[in-house]
Amino acid sequence: MSDLFASAAVGGSSMLGPQARVLHGFALQAAPALLHGIAQIAAQAPFRRLSTPGGRRIQVEMTNCGRYGWYSDRRGYRYEAIDPDSGRAWPAMPDDFLQLAVAAAAAAGFPGYRPDACLINRYRPGAGMGLHQDRDEEDTRAPIVSVSLGLPAVFLFGGMTRGEPTVRVPLAHGDVAVWGGVDRMRFHGVRPLAPGHDPATGDFRLNLTFRKVR
């Protein structure tokens, strides 16, 4: 699949910080393979709405692939090697997923990236993600690679504390956001999704978030 990224520079990129950028359209050619992979993963580990440690249900539906899967319930936020809902290992990360994550990280200045987890989020209209830091990983400098598929969204990218101003970043189908290094612990989130219809995903936005857990 590496040749799918040969024309990725056509869409250009936007800098969000010294080590944070959006690669516009980087995943466009790979999108059909990614969506096929998501369907296969969801058949083994269905999307579900998790709960926060405080008992509040998270708005977006989630599943995982890779060596580890992110999970949340009253026990806390954490990574699990076994899907607590099925008692089985999470589906393996497809090669298409891994190649895209590695290529996007390298394009954003992070060569040698090797994620071991991919959290897959499904947003329905009205669902969003509040400002938060990704801090459950042992490696807090390796980049996060976030792939947008389907309906457009507004990504919020802030500072190192929750109260700092945020930048609103429009994300379209095929865009990839990458942040790591000095920008790795910035607060970020997603505005509630506006209603719409996308030819590739229907009434949803899908988001692949690659992480290096250990």
Rank of each mutant, 00 (worst) to 15 (best):
residue 37 G to Q: 00
residue 40 Q to M: 13
residue 23 L to D: 05
residue 21 R to N: 10
residue 24 H to D: 06
residue 41 I to Q: 02
residue 25 G to E: 00
residue 24 H to C: 12
residue 29 Q to P: 03
residue 23 L to V: 09
residue 36 H to W: 02
residue 41 I to K: 01
residue 21 R to T: 04
residue 49 R to S: 14
residue 17 G to Y: 08
residue 17 G to H: 10
residue 45 A to P: 05
residue 40 Q to D: 15
residue 46 P to V: 10
residue 40 Q to A: 14
residue 19 Q to A: 14
residue 21 R to Y: 02
residue 42 A to D: 04
residue 41 I to E: 03
residue 40 Q to N: 10
residue 44 Q to S: 12
residue 29 Q to C: 06
residue 17 G to R: 08
residue 28 L to V: 12
residue 44 Q to A: 15
residue 28 L to I: 04
residue 20 A to R: 11
residue 43 A to P: 03
residue 27 A to S: 12
residue 34 L to G: 01
residue 24 H to Q: 11
residue 31 A to S: 14
residue 18 P to C: 04
residue 15 M to T: 13
residue 23 L to K: 11
residue 37 G to C: 00
residue 23 L to H: 04
residue 30 A to D: 05
residue 47 F to N: 09
residue 24 H to A: 13
residue 33 A to K: 09
residue 27 A to Q: 10
residue 33 A to R: 11
residue 46 P to M: 13
residue 36 H to I: 01
residue 38 I to K: 01
residue 26 F to M: 11
residue 25 G to C: 01
residue 20 A to E: 08
residue 25 G to S: 08
residue 37 G to A: 05
residue 26 F to G: 04
residue 24 H to V: 08
residue 27 A to F: 04
residue 18 P to A: 12
residue 18 P to E: 11
residue 21 R to G: 05
residue 45 A to V: 07
residue 24 H to N: 12
residue 35 L to G: 02
residue 36 H to S: 14
residue 17 G to N: 13
residue 46 P to Q: 12
residue 47 F to Y: 14
residue 39 A to R: 12
residue 23 L to P: 07
residue 38 I to V: 15
residue 16 L to K: 09
residue 29 Q to S: 13
residue 16 L to F: 11
residue 48 R to E: 11
residue 35 L to Y: 00
residue 43 A to Q: 12
residue 19 Q to E: 15
residue 48 R to P: 07
residue 24 H to S: 14
residue 24 H to F: 06
residue 35 L to H: 05
residue 16 L to S: 08
residue 45 A to H: 13
residue 35 L to R: 01
residue 26 F to V: 08
residue 42 A to W: 02
residue 22 V to C: 06
residue 16 L to I: 09
residue 32 P to L: 08
residue 37 G to V: 00
residue 26 F to Q: 09
residue 42 A to N: 03
residue 18 P to H: 04
residue 43 A to S: 14
residue 39 A to Y: 01
residue 39 A to S: 14
residue 16 L to H: 11
residue 29 Q to A: 15
residue 28 L to H: 04
residue 24 H to M: 10
residue 22 V to S: 09
residue 49 R to Y: 11
residue 34 L to W: 01
residue 46 P to H: 12
residue 44 Q to H: 07
residue 25 G to K: 00
residue 45 A to Q: 08
residue 36 H to P: 00
residue 22 V to R: 05
residue 32 P to F: 03
residue 43 A to V: 04
residue 39 A to W: 01
residue 30 A to S: 14
residue 21 R to A: 15
residue 44 Q to R: 14
residue 41 I to S: 02
residue 40 Q to F: 02
residue 22 V to M: 07
residue 32 P to E: 09
residue 28 L to N: 07
residue 41 I to H: 02
residue 49 R to M: 04
residue 22 V to H: 07
residue 25 G to A: 01
residue 37 G to S: 05
